[in-house]
């Protein structure tokens, strides 16, 4: 199996970082690519972005939020345990420009994806400004890692508990209107946020890449579950993306498609919680 977890770090409530030994992905993975994993033999295939990698050590880093059954089960794994299946690197790497000013706008768990982008952008000699958003201070992740790399880092929180109060879009608009010559924007986060970031850059004609996160099954181009409409054309995000020209993306369709299985996912999580409760009760009774 391989895929041994060598480091676990809690970044925020329900948000964890795993460093995992997978030498071939550590060698080949690039910013913007992702992996697909399963936690057991009945498990769902879940896509997670390559947040970082260390080719020398042969490890990759994933950062994930516990939102459903699979990510919760993943969150219970400990150092030394192995991940049942892990395939990658999938998707196309981000196209990294050189000598440009690029703003990376991340929100929530999306900041984990901004991290490798900023790194790649800096390595290619770009000026890079990171705008990182979170609902509240406690949920802000990877601030120090990104701050250490970016030329400038702006933090926003919805409730004003840290950094600027308000949305990432406000910070972005202020930046552009304040005279910063922005050549390109990359945005990763909740779909609604990406939609508004793209709407904000459109009037200025700034090329904007959005990293899309549709539901996926195989991640190898074989099923079409991940299809998104870009410029009126159907594209398979797992092989043709996940990054697309944000001004061309049909975000509303993506939002609708992401919500399709919510009742089923809820049921799956509830049933999982029930089983765990029963098992815990059982352990109490028969220690």
């Amino acid at each position: 199996m391989g895929n041994k977890i060598v480091r676990v770090q809690e970044l925020a409530p329900r948000t964890r970082l795993f460093e995992i030994e997978v030498p071939h992905i550590a060698q080949r993975g690039k910013a913007g690519q992702f992996v697909i994993l399963r936690v057991n033999d009945e498990g769902e295939r879940v896509p997670l972005t390559l947040a970082s990698r260390d080719p020398g050590k042969g490890t990759i880093t994933l950062v994930f939020q516990e939102v459903g059954k699979t990510t919760e089960m993943l969150g219970r794994l400990q150092v030394g345990q192995e991940i049942h299946d892990l395939a990658g690197p999938l998707g196309k790497p981000t196209e990294i420009p050189t000598g440009k000013t690029v703003v990376c706008v991340g929100g929530g768990i999306g900041n984990a994806v901004v991290w490798p982008q900023v790194q790649a952008l800096k390595e290619a000699g770009n000026r890079c400004i990171a705008i990182l958003g979170a609902r509240t201070k406690e949920l802000l992740i990877l601030e120090h890692e990104i701050r250490a790399l970016a030329d400038e880092t702006i933090i926003t929180t919805d409730d004003g508990s840290y950094g600027r109060k308000g949305m990432v879009t406000h910070a972005l608009t202020d930046l552009i209107e304040g005279g910063e010559k922005v050549d390109e924007v990359i945005t990763i986060g909740p779909v609604v946020m990406m939609k508004f970031v793209c709407r904000a850059t459109q009037p200025f004609g700034i090329p904007t890449q959005a990293s899309l996160n549709p539901l996926m099954v195989d991640g190898t181009g074989m099923c079409g579950a991940c299809r998104v409409t870009v410029g009126g054309k159907t594209r398979f995000a797992c092989v043709e993306g996940p990054e697309f020209d944000g001004h061309q993306v049909d975000f509303d369709e993506l939002i609708t498609r992401l919500a399709y299985y919510q009742p089923e996912e809820r049921a799956s999580l509830d049933s999982y919680h029930r089983c765990r409760l029963e098992a815990a009760a059982d352990r109490l009774q028969n220690p």
Binding site: M222, C223, S271
Partner: peptide
């Protein structure tokens, strides 16, 4: 769905056993 997605959800991922025998949902 494409047939591949439908059949994959049910066959490869065992979706017909959802939610207690498999985690991949089938409506």
């Amino acid at each position: 769905y494409s047939a591949n997605e439908f059949l994959t959800r049910v066959n490869l991922m065992g979706g017909y056993k959802f939610p207690d025998g498999a985690d991949t949902p089938v409506k």
